[in-house]
Design a protein around this nucleic acid. Structure first.
Length: 735
RNA sequence: AGCGGGGUGGGGUAGCUUGGAAAUCCCAUCAGGCUCAUAACCUGAAGAUCGUUGGUUCAAAUCCAACCCCCGCUACCA
């Protein structure tokens, strides 16, 4: 029996977990842990919420509540979602516990004593009015390279240069705009340089790591490691266990990874055996696996091993299984951009095994993968439902109807033996692939077994035998049910809920969880009564779930032009006052297309929550939407007159958050011609897309939000759609 | 700009590390079969000169070079 410690990266408690967390760390870790328990390995699966760090304090400030409120809220929500998904943690804790603080302190002091930490004093901006030190990106000023006015302390967006806050000219506090002063502040640094050599050796010996993880890490090591500060001037986080550091906290990047150790200790404390954690951390034969996303690699292959080496006597990661990203509509999942499918919400609509199936089958193990509802529905329907679920159901329901008990096994012929052979093959390959953390391949082997079940069932045709040879029929059904049982056992790591229900449906004793892998050999209970079987999975509709939620960041309103002036300082720009419920100023580049007269009193569609930007010295507080095709341009306007300020929500929930121009540009909106009204389909360029909501009249030309292969016609209240004031080809990009 | 990933039949993909019978699987398409099952399952067919251009080689999707596209990271979000 082996022993494995399975660690899943810690989700940040600043929002609900989303598909990315599940596919990157939670699900692979769970599959791996379930598999190991199944085959009888002593397994500990742990993780928790990362409660500290600046983004949580930012959210807290915004809501005017203490950071604990935010962190606790999402810890609560996420714990539930994780449980709902069937992630079988032995402990899911968080980093804001006294236990974690103690363990972090121990580690910190141990490193200090061994000389791996050093104190250094650095200048840092301090804002008097906010009475706080400012992180680099909270400092704003003039870029020393290009002279742009709104450069942030960490980077200048205008020229893309990396900066130090001290380099900025006329620095301002981004929070209150007052001038901060440079103050000396003392911090602890982790001397990563101490570890470079050892780490290199360690990583080079890890030939079983995924190639991208290993080569990426070696790359970073070759570039050399800089000593990094592990404390900072903030108030939310783990206190520094050294006198004179009361106003400082330990940096999250250093403290959060220690959660793996503190969680194991906490788990042990809740058992009768408080030293139990040592079996997983001090016994060199225990292998530790870490599941995370690729953005987290260095923390697990360099920083965490460095800390562990520094402390000494603790196991370094055996494998760091980093996944790539699962994207949505070609973009990275990102809450701030509304590109997100959060799990709590998803679970209200779908059963956990269905979600687990798709995310496993499409897991970004070696390269990024793409999440789409269409693909989701297709894979679930054709693979999980039609091949896997249907096989189990046809075998079980046929048996139930004709025998109502588990049929007896008579003499086997070659075909039967070959079918049983497939089970052995499948169990071998599933177990090999899972041991190697190749989840997609393992799942593929499972589905192949389901298909071979269908082939067998077809070939032996029990529906004919039941009339000609009942004994023979019992035998082939017995073999079929053996295949079902194997599907349950082998599928358990992926589909735990369905597997248990198959196990029960077959009339097996106990639970599959406690029976384990040896359930493959456990004989069927011949003669046992069967319950009436029900299908395992139902088909799903892609359109029922598809969301255009990423467009909800657009706060669009009807605007009426009040005045149009030429820009005093630019050839192509107008400065317009527009009434969107309140008058705002918009600078637009329409001079080549429209005269001032043409624009006056026009009703337009205005993006109102764009970050204000200065265009040639005049501040623009929004943007009017227009379709553009080559040198043609047409403005969007409601098909019926609407009062200025009317929301154009297109039926989406709106946020009032500001978006940057860059984010806005990533959203795809087009002019489209309705190809048919029922079902609603719209032609955009040379593609015909299905419409998510009601469309307009056939032949009408409307503005549409485009996402993958579906479109949503932009509309305001009462379904008033947005049209164009000039002729523009379908497919023209709206911006 | 730097770093990283990718461009394979209509869509999505495997293979590329360790070059070798013109290429995997799913969906869609077409033709059959079956009727137990959730119009499901089974069998077969059509369909790709493997981003472009050069090179190495007896032989390249697979190695090398250049180029063209797409995307992510560089913001403490897997």
């Amino acid at each position: 029996m082996d022993r494995v410690l399975v660690c899943s990266a810690w989700p940040y408690a600043n929002g609900p977990i989303h598909v990315g967390h599940v596919t990157g760390s939670l699900l692979p870790a769970d599959i791996f842990a379930r598999f190991n328990r199944l085959v009888g390995n002593e397994t500990l699966l742990i993780s928790g919420s990362d409660m500290h760090g600046a983004p949580i304090t930012v959210s807290a400030d915004k809501e005017k509540v203490p950071p604990e409120v935010i962190a606790d809220r999402y810890h609560e929500i996420n714990s539930k979602a994780i449980e709902g998904l069937g992630i079988s943690f032995d402990l899911y804790t968080h980093t804001h516990t006294s236990n974690h603080q103690e363990v972090v302190n121990e580690v910190f002091l141990e490193l200090l004593e061994k000389g791996h930490l050093k104190r250094m004093t650095t200048p840092q901006y301090y804002c008097d009015r906010c009475s706080r030190f400012l992180p680099d990106r909270y400092v704003e000023g003039t870029c020393p390279h290009c002279g742009a006015d709104h450069a942030r302390g960490d980077q200048c967006d205008a020229c893309g240069m990396d900066l130090n806050a001290q380099d900025l000219k006329s620095a301002r506090c981004q929070l209150c705009s007052s001038s901060p002063e440079l103050r000396e502040t003392e911090h602890f640094f982790l001397k990563l340089s101490d570890f470079t050599g050892g780490l290199k050796e360690y990583v080079e010996a890890r030939n079983h790591w995924r190639p991208h993880v290993r080569s990426f890490t070696l790359n970073v090591l070759d570039e050399g490691l800089l000593d990094r500060p592990i404390t900072r001037d903030i108030s939310w986080g783990v206190p520094v266990p050294v006198d004179g550091f009361d106003s400082k906290r330990i940096y999250v990047w250093f403290e959060a990874v220690i959660g793996y150790l503190s969680a194991a200790k906490q788990w042990a404390a809740t058992k009768s055996d408080p030293d139990a954690w040592e079996r997983f951390w001090k016994d060199g034969s225990c292998r530790s696996y870490y599941f995370l996303g690729k953005d987290n690699i260095v923390f697990h292959t360099i920083i965490w091993p460095a800390i562990l080496t520094g402390v000494g006597g603790l196991n370094l990661p055996y494998d760091v299984v980093a996944n790539q990203f699962m994207n949505l509509g070609g973009q990275k999942f990102s809450k701030s951009m509304g590109v997100s499918i959060d799990i709590p919400e998803l679970l209200t609509k779908l059963r956990p095994d269905v979600v687990r199936y798709y995310l496993s089958a499409n897991m970004p193990e070696f390269k990024d993968s793409e999440f789409s509802w269409e693909d989701f529905a297709q894979r679930v329907n054709s693979e999980l439902v039609a091949t896997y679920g249907n096989f189990v159901h046809r075998a079980l329901s046929f048996t139930f109807k004709n025998f109502a008990t588990v049929p007896a096994k008579g003499d086997l012929d070659d075909r039967d033996r070959a079918a049983l052979e497939r089970i052995t093959d499948a169990s071998r390959s599933v177990s090999e692939f899972l041991s190697a953390c190749e989840f997609r391949e393992a799942l593929k082997s499972l589905m192949d077994l389901a298909q071979s079940g269908n082939q067998y069932f077809d070939a032996v045709a029990p529906w004919a035998l039941v009339r000609s040879d009942r004994d023979r029929c019992e035998t082939v059904l017995h073999v079929s049910l053996e295949i079902c049982k194997a599907l349950a056992v082998l599928g358990y790591p992926f589909l735990p809920f369905s597997s248990e229900s198959i196990w029960k449906g077959l009339g097996m004793d106990g639970s599959l969880e406690e029976t384990g892998w040896k359930g493959l050999e456990t004989p069927l209970n011949e003669g046992a009564a069967l319950e009436r079987p029900a299908p395992l999975f139902a088909k799903m509709e892609a359109t029922a779930f598809g969301g255009f939620s990423q467009f909800s960041v657009l706060n669009l309103k009807v605007g009426k032009v009040l005045s149009v002036e030429p820009h005093p300082d630019a050839d192509k720009l107008y400065v317009m006052k527009v009434d969107v419920g309140k008058p705002i100023t918009i600078v637009s580049g329409l001079k080549d297309y429209y005269t001032a007269d043409e624009l006056s009193a026009k009703t337009l569609v205005i993006l109102t929550n764009l970050e204000p930007a200065k265009l040639r010295g005049v501040k623009s507080e929004g943007m009017l939407l227009a379709a553009e095709d080559g040198d043609k341009l047409a403005l969007l306007t409601p098909e019926k007159e609407l009062v200025p300020g009317t929301q154009i929500s297109s039926g989406l929930e709106l946020t009032d958050k500001q978006i940057s121009y860059k984010e806005f540009q990533k959203l795809d909106m087009r002019a489209g011609v309705m190809a048919s009204a029922d079902p609603p389909r719209i032609q955009v360029g040379d593609k015909v897309l299905g419409c998510a909501a009601s469309g307009g009249e056939t032949g009408g030309k409307y503005a549409a939000l485009v996402l993958d292969d579906s479109a949503l016609v932009m509309h305001g209240p009462d379904g008033v759609k947005m049209v164009f004031d000039r002729d523009i080809p379908a497919g023209a990009r709206i911006r």
